[in-house]
């Protein structure tokens, strides 16, 4: 399994689309690693610096409809090669969400009030989130406070994460 424990990048916006996550002009790359410098290059978010802000991050916390638009799996790959294996949001676009689990990564949905609380209580400080897949719990910690948040993980999503993605799962089964 991938690493699901580390520092949080807060992206305080809804409808962040796959063109923003990885612009189409980089889709000519044929290795995942080549996408690394371009993650979130076109993100429209005041004060965001894609060179500095994504360093050492493992978890993204954001708002509604993350990953809308194109089907490009380059979006999860660009996150993955930067060490980001978890996105926590109010909701996801279908294809992006499936692409995350298909890669053995996690797209975790939380209700609006829990997302609001994460932004209100943690976005100003260095925050760490550890995902416990067995217990379906998030351990959130900053220098000032900490809490445990329950989340829902479907059976199929869980097995994809445990088996390292859909190709491994499907190849063993079909």
């Amino acid at each position: 399994m991938k690493n699901f424990n580390g520092k949080v990048l807060f992206l305080d916006r809804s409808d962040i689309n796959t063109d923003e996550i990885i612009p189409a002009k980089y889709l000519t790359e044929i290795t995942k690693e080549a996408l690394k410098p371009y993650l979130l290059e076109d993100l429209s978010l005041k004060g965001f610096d894609n060179k500095e802000d994504i360093k050492d991050k493992v978890v993204v916390v954001t708002r509604e409809n993350f990953g809308c638009g194109s089907s490009r799996e380059h979006a999860p790959w660009a996150l993955e090669v930067n060490g980001i294996n978890v996105v926590i949001a109010e909701s996801f676009a279908r294809i992006f969400r499936q692409n995350m689990f298909n890669c053995g990564m996690m797209a975790i949905e939380l209700p609006k009030e829990k997302i609001d609380n994460l932004f209100n209580n943690y976005s100003g400080s260095i925050t760490n989130i550890e995902v416990d897949i067995e217990k379906a719990k998030l351990f959130v910690t900053s220098s000032e406070q900490s809490e445990v948040i329950d989340f829902e993980l479907g059976g199929f999503d869980k097995v994809l994460v445990q088996e390292g993605g859909w190709v491994n799962y499907a190849d063993n089964r079909y």
Binding site: S70, E73, I95, D171
Partner: peptide, 27 residues
């Protein structure tokens, strides 16, 4: 993502990522 176009014929047509495509090709 615009694979949804083919639903115009009464088909279930869905855009997917590369991993779904890979499994589709193989299996």
């Amino acid at each position: 993502s615009h694979t949804c176009t083919h639903g115009a014929f009464g088909a279930f047509a869905a855009g997917v990522g590369t991993t779904d495509l890979e499994v589709g090709i193989l299996k």
